[in-house]
């Protein structure tokens, strides 16, 4: 349960699951039907990625571990997702920006991960990369559209940057388990920054120069939001223990 590879796979899985959960909250509530369907597609892709990672982690753990025991029966401080993905939807601007920041990161990450020594991780990353490439395109276009749209959309994008920028630094600081397995995330930071700068410039949104970067999620120390997410996510499993669904 505590070896670095296991922790690393769970970290990848948790990121995907928590963002899938957040995006899924839009289903039925999107700004227009077409985009409701689009964000749900992204949620489904991320959920699929999470399942692949959890299933792999479960197979390594053996015993009675399953994708569901890993997703539904771990508590807050056992979750290793970054703080960014657990931030609330708030509005379309924050949802879009969260997706864009994360998809840019995930794209660079999976690009390297598909060459990993671990064949299973490499295979999951290679498959997911195609999905992420679409998420990136979709969210990038929306970032520009909102940044360069109306005065209100521009203002909301600025608010979104203010809310989310502080959670981006953590993505590139290797956690203890990342020092031993997987991709060295410190190496993708420059590429991420460069791409984000280009897109934000096109959107007409300036990024803060000095922001204190919040950390902790990857080590299990989260914002208060995660507790509520897990309360919902895990409620049925915990209310009816030892049942099949």
């Amino acid at each position: 349960m505590n070896d670095p590879l296991n922790k690393y796979i769970l970290h990848l899985a948790d990121n995907a699951l928590i963002l899938a959960q957040r995006n899924g909250e839009w289903c039925g509530h999107g700004p227009i039907l077409e985009q409701d369907i689009a964000i749900t597609n992204i949620s489904l892709d991320l959920l699929g990625q999470a399942r692949n990672f959890y299933q792999y982690a479960a197979s390594l753990q053996g015993n009675d571990a399953t994708e569901d025991s890993l997703a539904y029966l771990r508590i807050e401080n056992e979750y290793r997702n970054g703080l960014l993905v657990e931030q609330p939807n708030i509005d379309w601007a924050q949802t879009i920006l969260r997706q864009y920041f994360f998809s840019t990161y995930q794209y660079l990450l999976y690009e390297k991960l598909q060459a990993a020594d671990d064949a299973q991780l490499a295979a999951i990353a290679a498959k997911a990369l195609k999905e992420v490439s679409y998420h990136l395109r979709w969210s990038r276009e929306w970032v520009i559209r909102l940044g360069d749209g109306t005065a209100e959309s521009h203002r909301r994008m600025i608010q979104a940057v203010d809310a989310l920028w502080r959670y981006t630094g953590e993505l590139f600081i290797p956690a203890d388990y990342e020092n031993q397995v997987g991709v060295d995330v410190s190496l993708i930071k420059d590429a991420w920054t460069e791409q984000v700068n280009v897109v934000m410039a096109e959107a007409g949104i300036s990024l803060p120069e000095k922001t204190y970067m919040q950390t902790g999620g990857k080590q299990g120390i989260h914002t208060e939001h995660l507790g509520y997410i897990l309360a919902e996510l895990q409620y049925v499993q915990r209310a009816y223990p030892n049942s099949s669904w």
């Binding site: 909250e25 999470a50 539904y72 919902e232 049925v236 669904w245």
Partner: peptide, 10 residues
């Protein structure tokens, strides 16, 4: 958000 398994959620 409350589906009891990942498969059911999907």
């Amino acid at each position: 958000s409350r589906a009891p398994s990942l498969k059911r959620k999907a």
